[in-house]
Write a protein that binds this DNA or RNA. Sequence first.
DNA 1: TCCTTTGTTGAACGATCACTCAAAAAATAA
DNA 2: TTATTTTTTGAGTGATCGTTCAACAAAGGA
Lengths: 215, 215
Amino acid sequence: MSGMGKTGAARGRPRAFDRDAALAAATRLFWERGFEATSVGELTEAMGIRPGSLYAAFGDKRALFEEVVHAYRRSPVGAFIGRALQEEPTAHRAFARILREAAAVYPDPSHPAGCLVISAATNVTAQDAGVATFLRGLREANLTAFRDRLRTAQREGELPSGADPAALAGYFAAVVQGMSQRARDGADAAELTAVAELAMAVWPAHAPDGPAAPG
Amino acid sequence: MSGMGKTGAARGRPRAFDRDAALAAATRLFWERGFEATSVGELTEAMGIRPGSLYAAFGDKRALFEEVVHAYRRSPVGAFIGRALQEEPTAHRAFARILREAAAVYPDPSHPAGCLVISAATNVTAQDAGVATFLRGLREANLTAFRDRLRTAQREGELPSGADPAALAGYFAAVVQGMSQRARDGADAAELTAVAELAMAVWPAHAPDGPAAPG
DNA sequence: TCCTTTGTTGAACGATCACTCAAAAAATAA
DNA sequence: TTATTTTTTGAGTGATCGTTCAACAAAGGA
């Protein structure tokens, strides 16, 4: 083991910029404008580096974007849905929390409005269709997670047997995506919170013991 | 009045292409990809004309897009919301019809999925921010129309006094925009119809005469 | 010290972008 | 026929796109 150096020993010239800070700057730009509407010229300026450094550190524009997305999904804004599904004991609490947190986080002025996964690749050239497909896959995974959670809730008796978990999943997915869009259009937390509270009103109630009284 | 010719008499060389058909081809492209992701090269190819003809007939890319949007708003797909608000006697019927028609029309395979006004300018360069603002204004007008209709309904007693017309308007706007997004992601009419039916469940009921019985 | 490795720099690459223009063509008016 | 008006054509405008590369710089290893 003669050549075993220190673990942290860098071999060549050290990087002159903070990789995480550069990634954060790129995230902000992609989040605000989307993949194709963000040029590498704007990226290098915002990241404070020259094109060569960007390509050496991140590969190319597409690889940088995918790394941005993966980092975003581990961030509070990008992970709150999965966290709510995992942490809340009931489906009702999970979806109520998802909608309320979306209402608070999507219009938060400390970062670009809305959800990056929902809005960063909606208008895309034919040659960059892969980027749109990539994000669509993530949205599809969210929809599946919604449906799975609701099916579990139905199996466990939280949801009445008459409820339709797949339909509810599609509904909540549409509401969340709509809230992201509304946030990008300038809707504030108060308005989106009202939307969230209204949206939860569709939650299916268990049928009462006796037949419903006619109006 | 010696020089008064026939009304329909064309003075110079007649246009060699069908202007409406060319506009329809441009609509389809802008609808599918959005404003910036559609190049004038793709436009001229789809329209079957050369760049000079496009610029002579429509001005420039931006003017062509705005003409596309105005034509779209007069088409069945672009006008169903306004039509429902005008034609239905009650707000409840109007919004139920809006959601059901959105569920049918957004995924209709005879044209690109979703709503052009909602999705054609979400990712946009700084220099084309005006296009995004233009469409955002149309969406804002829709939201205002929703709110006005719901306020009227409340004034006329259709909506209970405890209801919040502005919140409901934001809710329906978010649901419609979410349904458009879901259609672009491949959701079919059946799934979106289920979303529409669920979404109408938030409609406020008048309070019963006596106090509500606790669960 | 010299070698190897990695990063930075600034100037470029070809491709595509939206757009223009002079010349030719096709119609009416005189 | 000749003149006028409008459209079409095909080549070409400068700008910007994402990307590359040779030269130089800064670190560790021998």
